[in-house]
Computed example of a mutant assay.
Amino acid sequence: MKTWHPASVLLAWASLMILAQLARGPWCGGLGLVLLGCMLAWAPARGRRLLRRVRVLLVVLFVLFVFFTPGEALLPWLGSLGPTREGLELAALHGMRLVMAVSLVALLLEHCSETRLVRGLVALARPLAPLGLSPERLGVRMLLVLRYVETPPPGGWRQLLTEHDHFPDLQLVLDKAPWGLHDFVLMALALLGLGLGLMV
C-alpha cells in the first residue's frame, strides 16, 4: 500500500484550500457539497465539533451580508432594514467558503498526525533555508501550537508569553519519509489544478 509523503499531502491540501476560497457560483456550491460530504464520511466527529466552534461566525456572516449589503430588497415593506438579494448571495458564498475551510481542516487533522504534519511542513520549508529560515525551528513552533490546541496550559494563551516551560516533554523527532513517484504526480496535479483555478 502506498504511503503519501506528508509534504505532498500538505501541498495538495493547501491547493484545495485556495481553490475553495476562489470558487464562485455553481463551482462554489458543488465543491462545497463534495467537501462537506467527504468530511461527514471520513471525519464526522471532528467536523461537527469544528462546525460548532464556528457557528457564531456563520451567524454573524449571515446577518452582516444579508442585512447590510445594498441591493434589491427581498422584503420591500421593511425598507432599508430588510434583507437584500445581493446580500443573501454574498452570505451564501462566504458561508460556504467557511464551511469548505472547516471541512478541509477536519479531514487533514483526522487523517494526518501532528508528527506527519510537522514533517511535511519542515520538508516544504527546506528550500527557504538559504534565506535564513530554519525549517526545524518552524517545525518546533508548529508542534507547540498543535500541542497547545490539544492541551492548553493552565491560564490559557497568556501563560505562553511567560518564560516558563509549559511543555517540558516537547521533542521534535522527524525521521526521513520516503518520496515516491505518486507524491510528485500528486504535487504536479495540485499545482496544475491551482494554476487553472487562478486563470479561471
Score class of each variant (00 low, 15 high):
Pro83Lys: 12
His111Ile: 02
Leu93Lys: 09
Val63Asn: 09
Met142Leu: 15
Arg49Ala: 10
Ala14Gln: 04
His182Gln: 03
Leu22Glu: 10
Glu150Asn: 06
Gln171Leu: 14
Arg158Met: 13
Val56Lys: 11
Glu114Val: 09
Leu109Gln: 01
Phe62Lys: 00
Ala12Gln: 01
Phe65Arg: 03
Phe65Gly: 07
Met39Arg: 12
Pro44Ala: 09
Leu109Cys: 02
Pro83Tyr: 15
Arg48His: 11
Ala14Trp: 12
Asp175Ile: 02
Leu181Ile: 09
Leu144Tyr: 15
Cys28Glu: 04
Leu189Asp: 06
Val66Ile: 11
Val59Asn: 10
Tyr148Leu: 00
Leu160Ser: 04
Arg46Gly: 03
Ala125Tyr: 07
Glu136Gln: 08
Gly30Asp: 06
Glu89Met: 13
Asp169Gln: 12
Leu90Met: 12
Arg147Tyr: 13
Gln159Phe: 15
Ala45Thr: 09
Pro178Thr: 04
Gly156Met: 02
Met100Thr: 07
Leu170Gly: 02
Leu146Tyr: 14
Leu198Gln: 10
Gly132Met: 04
Val56Tyr: 14
Val60Gln: 06
Cys112Arg: 01
Leu58Trp: 13
Leu61Gln: 02
Thr162Met: 09
Leu131Arg: 02
Asp169Met: 05
Leu131Met: 11
Gly132Asp: 01
Thr162His: 11
Arg55Met: 04
Arg147Ile: 05
Asp165Asn: 10
Leu144Asn: 12
Gly193Ser: 05
Leu138Trp: 03
Met199Trp: 15
Arg24Ala: 13
Leu192Met: 12
Trp77Arg: 03
Leu191Asn: 05
Trp179Glu: 04
Val63Tyr: 08
Leu74Val: 00
Met100Glu: 06
Arg119Glu: 10
Gly197Ile: 06
Leu107Asn: 01
Pro127Asp: 09
Leu93Gln: 06
Met96Gly: 07
Leu124Met: 05
His111Trp: 15
Met199Leu: 15
Gly139Asn: 00
Leu143Lys: 01
Gly180Pro: 02
Arg24His: 14
Val54Gln: 05
Ala106Tyr: 03
Pro154Leu: 05
Met199Asn: 15
Val185Trp: 15
Leu170Val: 05
Gly37Glu: 05
Asp169Cys: 03
Gly197Leu: 07
Gly47His: 09
Leu196Asn: 09
Leu196Trp: 11
Leu88Arg: 05
Phe68Tyr: 14
Leu74Gln: 10
Arg137Glu: 08
Met142Asn: 09
Trp157Arg: 00
Leu75Lys: 13
Met199His: 15
Leu160Ile: 00
Val34Thr: 08
Leu50Thr: 01
Arg49His: 11
Lys176Met: 03
Val145Arg: 13
Leu74Gly: 06
Leu146Phe: 14
Gly79Lys: 12
